[in-house]
């Protein structure tokens, strides 16, 4: 961590994020309809405390960032490989969107290949073969031996 004289933009963003979260919690708690019997120590006390803590922490990080103090937030690296992050994000989101439509085998294989690409592998053919074998073995193992259901997707009726 760099000490002193180093303003941080991240501190502002993270701080505002905390404040916003606090506001959401406070709003959600305020609109809660509580039967009067529970009014005293009801389900609202802890959310309000949490909202307050979030807002205070947010303000703290904004202040520390603006004043360039010890607690100013700085990334741990100067170079960030955003393409790698995008590839892995695409893999995880496609797993969520496609698992029930295309089935586990294909969506998991896609995830594997995208993650491998994100980690710098460019041997797409090798990765795809490993991915299909892995997700196929996992699918059969889980559904046949552990008795846990996974979506078959387009292979429905075949496997």
């Amino acid at each position: 961590m760099t000490v002193g004289g180093n303003r941080s933009k991240a501190g502002l963003v993270v701080g505002l994020g905390f404040v916003a979260l606090g506001a959401i919690v406070a709003y959600d708690t305020a609109v809660m309809r509580i039967p009067p019997t529970y009014a005293k120590v009801g389900p609202q006390v802890f959310p309000y405390l949490t909202a307050m803590a979030l807002a205070l922490l947010g303000a703290f990080f904004i202040f520390q960032g603006r004043a360039g103090k010890n607690e100013a937030l700085h990334a741990d690296t100067k170079e960030t490989d955003w393409t790698a992050l995008a590839a892995i994000s695409a893999g995880l989101l496609s797993q969520a969107l496609l698992i029930e439509f295309l089935g586990f085998i294909i969506s998991a294989a896609l995830l594997f290949v995208l993650v491998a690409w994100g980690f710098g592998s460019r041997k797409i053919v090798r990765d795809s073969v490993i991915a299909i074998v892995l997700s196929g073995v996992v699918y059969v193992g889980f559904t046949q031996f552990l008795n846990l259901q996974l979506p078959a997707g387009i292979f429905k009726g075949l496997l």
Binding site: L92, L111, A116, S135, F142
Partner: peptide
């Protein structure tokens, strides 16, 4: 190699969470 290792880790992670 890291690409295959993390590919596998994330496949098992999503699998664990989904199941």
């Amino acid at each position: 190699p890291a690409p295959l290792l993390y590919g596998g880790i994330l496949v098992f992670s999503t699998l664990g969470v989904y199941s």
